[in-house]
Each structure stands twice: as structure tokens, then as C-alpha cells.
């Protein structure tokens, strides 16, 4: 499915289940998403982490609703499954689509100005470097006798200085690679939203509505 449509579908669905309180629909969504990511081949470590980490917030919400909520155990379960529904819905997107494709379709089909599509993409592609950079900033501070914590303004200060510098470098490099804001470009890979994409999208979104309408528990 077209990544842009998929993202839209995922976000819309997640939004809807935030407003509704159907335990069964949540479970169905989890199951379907689960099957989808399994079909798309996922390794077990990822799967384990996907189940493991959300357990804490999900359990936390569950217990507090159970103890203090006015709606009892059913609603507690709704919240519990809601968290997992988010996670697995999200996984259907993040584990099976590339951000490059998302940027391409946002540019070509959703008419997002190319400077947004490629500017943000370029920044996202630096993500591994940024992780290293955070580590480097902390270490380099230690070597100058300063300790940085998450709440230290100077940590963010340096992070912003690096961002300013990197954004300048990247913008210059992209410009010298021929990129000009708001100018037409050709496309090696044309990504279209096909009739099939539309049909799938419509079908799934309607299916969610129908389920939410009929399954109230």
C-alpha cells in the first residue's frame, strides 16, 4: 500500500479508538496488525521489544483505572488494549515502510513542497549520527570537566549549536547538489496512489467504522 495512505489510515484509526471504548475492536485491531507485520516478516527480537516495553505503561494505566477509575475493570482493559493497538498499528507502518518512500509520496502525491519533504528527510537520515553526537557531546563535556544531564540547559544549547551548524552544511550541500527550493524536479521513481490503494483505504476505514458501530463491548 502507498506509504502515505498507510500512515493516514494508521493515524485515523488510532485517533478513532482514542475516542471509542470497545475492547473487542481493540483486540481485533491488534490481531490484524500483528498478522500483517508477521506476514511482512519481522524478527523476534523486535517483536519481543514491541510487546515488552509497552507492558509497563499499559499495566500502569490498567491498575490506576482499576483502583481509582469510575468505570471499572472493562474500561481498564480498554486502556490496556488501546496502548497495544497504538503500538501494533504504528508497527504496521514503521516496520514495513521506508521514510524515503514516505517522503517521495508526500512530495509527488500529497503536494507537499519538496523543501519540506527533502529537508526533513535529510535530517532524519542523520538520526544515527545524532545519536552518536549526543553521546559525544556528553563525553566531550566530561573531558572539559562538566557533567551534562537531561535537564542541563547546556546540553540542549550545544545540541542546538550543532543543529545550526549542520543545517547550514546540509542546506549548502543540497544546494550544491542542484536542489533549489520550489523548483520543479524530475522523478526517477514515480509513486502514484493507485485505484487499489484507494479501494484498500476505503475498505479498511469503513470496516473500522462498521466494527466500532456494532461492537460496543
Amino acid at each position: 500500500m502507498n506509504p502515505g495512505m498507510k500512515l493516514l489510515l494508521v493515524v485515523l484509526t488510532a485517533l478513532e479508538i482514542s475516542f471509542t471504548q470497545s475492547l473487542i475492536v481493540n483486540v481485533i485491531l491488534i490481531a490484524i496488525s500483528f498478522v500483517y507485520v508477521m506476514v511482512k516478516r519481522m524478527n523476534f527480537k523486535t517483536l519481543f521489544l514491541l510487546i515488552f516495553w509497552p507492558l509497563f505503561p499499559a499495566l500502569g494505566l490498567f491498575v490506576s483505572q482499576w483502583l481509582y477509575g469510575s468505570d471499572g475493570i472493562h474500561f481498564a482493559w480498554v486502556l490496556f488494549t488501546r496502548i497495544y493497538a497504538y503500538v501494533f498499528l504504528g508497527a504496521t507502518f514503521t516496520l514495513t515502510s521506508s521514510i524515503t518512500d514516505l517522503a517521495l509520496t508526500l512530495e509527488q502525491d500529497f503536494r507537499l513542497p519538496s523543501k519540506f519533504a527533502y529537508g526533513v528527510l535529510a535530517a532524519f537520515n542523520l538520526m544515527p549520527k545524532i545519536r552518536e553526537e549526543v553521546q559525544i557531546i556528553k563525553t566531550s563535556a566530561l573531558m572539559r570537566g562538566e557533567v551534562f544531564h537531561v535537564w542541563s540547559p547546556k546540553l540542549y544549547f550545544k545540541a542546538i549549536l550543532s543543529s545550526i551548524q549542520w543545517s547550514q552544511n546540509l542546506a549548502e550541500a543540497m544546494t550544491s547538489h542542484g536542489f533549489v527550493e520550489d523548483e520543479p524536479r524530475t522523478h526517477y521513481r514515480v509513486i502514484r496512489i493507485t485505484v487499489l490503494d484507494w479501494a484498500m483505504f476505503a475498505f479498511l476505514i469503513i470496516a473500522v467504522q462498521v466494527m466500532l458501530f456494532f461492537i460496543r463491548y
Binding site: 523543501k115 535530517a123 540542549y156 543543529s163 549542520w166 542546506a171
Partner: peptide, 19 residues
């Protein structure tokens, strides 16, 4: 909304996200 500013916003956001 220049290319540079867009990249800058994205980078700051990513830094914060990672921290």
C-alpha cells in the same frame, strides 16, 4: 520557511527526541 530553517527545526526536534 527556507530549506535551512526546515532542516534546523527537524534537527533540533530529533536531538530532543533522542535525548
Amino acid at each position: 520557511w527556507t530549506l535551512r530553517n526546515i532542516i534546523l527545526i527537524a534537527l533540533i526536534a530529533i536531538f530532543c527526541g533522542i535525548i
